[in-house]
Amino acid sequence: MTFSFEIPLLLLLLVTAAGAILVKDLMSAILLLGSYGFCLSLVWAWLGAVDVAFVEAVVGAGLATVLFLLTLFGTAPKDGRLRRPPPPIAVLIGLPLLGALMLYAANDLPTFGDPNSPSNSYVSPVYLERSYLDTKTPNVVTAVLMDYRSLDTMVETVVIFTAGLVCALLLRRKSHGTSS
């Protein structure tokens, strides 16, 4: 397997995530978070999850960035810079330790593209064989997203709608209560 795209893409993802956390300017943080969402959508596309990549590009890189920018433009100019104390020493030690433990645990995961992995041996054949019988939908992807995972898809839609509604409520101008 070649790492010609994977390593630079992973590094770009880590740089945008770290930049969004470390930068002090809110506008820069918002733009870096949008870049992070775009890089993450590229990762999902590279891994073959095109539907997840599309949702990440639309919601993570697009909609979230627009909503964050609208929220930032609706705030007072003095709120443009972040003022945060330095992180505690436990965080500076604990997060790299957690990352190292996660990388160590990742050794037990099946290799990418392994045809004998549990998901390819047990889950995928059931979906491929039974999707039309269970759902009467000829497209397996549609059957999985809209029939097998319909509750999950509905809840995701509710979460996105609620986030948009909260941003709209935060940004609305108060027209009542002002005296002339």
Rank of each mutant, 00 (worst) to 15 (best):
M1N: 12
M1H: 13
F3H: 04
S4A: 13
E6M: 12
E6P: 04
L12A: 14
L12Q: 09
V15T: 15
T16F: 02
A20Q: 10
A20K: 07
L22G: 02
K24H: 08
D25A: 05
L26Q: 11
M27P: 01
M27D: 06
S28K: 06
A29K: 09
G34I: 09
S35R: 04
C39N: 14
L40V: 05
A45I: 07
W46G: 09
L47N: 13
G48C: 06
G48R: 11
A49C: 04
A49L: 05
A49I: 06
D51T: 12
D51N: 12
A53T: 04
A53C: 02
F54T: 11
A57T: 12
V59Q: 01
G62E: 03
L67G: 04
F68S: 05
L70S: 02
T71N: 13
L72P: 02
F73V: 07
T75P: 03
T75H: 09
P77N: 02
K78S: 15
K78M: 12
G80H: 09
R81Q: 14
R83K: 13
P85G: 14
I89T: 15
L92W: 04
L95C: 06
P96K: 03
L98A: 11
A100E: 00
L101K: 07
L103A: 12
A106P: 04
N107C: 03
N107D: 10
P110R: 08
T111C: 05
G113R: 00
D114T: 08
D114S: 11
P115I: 07
S119C: 14
N120G: 00
N120S: 07
S121N: 05
S121A: 10
S121Y: 10
Y122D: 07
L128A: 07
R130W: 06
S131G: 05
P138S: 04
V140T: 05
V141A: 10
L145N: 02
L151E: 12
L151Y: 13
T153W: 01
V155H: 01
V155P: 02
V155S: 01
E156F: 15
V158N: 07
V158C: 07
V159Q: 04
A163R: 00
A163M: 04
G164I: 04
V166G: 00
C167S: 15
A168I: 04
L169D: 08
L170F: 15
L170M: 12
L170W: 15
L170K: 11
R172P: 03
R172Q: 10
K174T: 09
S175T: 15
G177R: 02
G177E: 00
T178K: 14
S179Q: 10
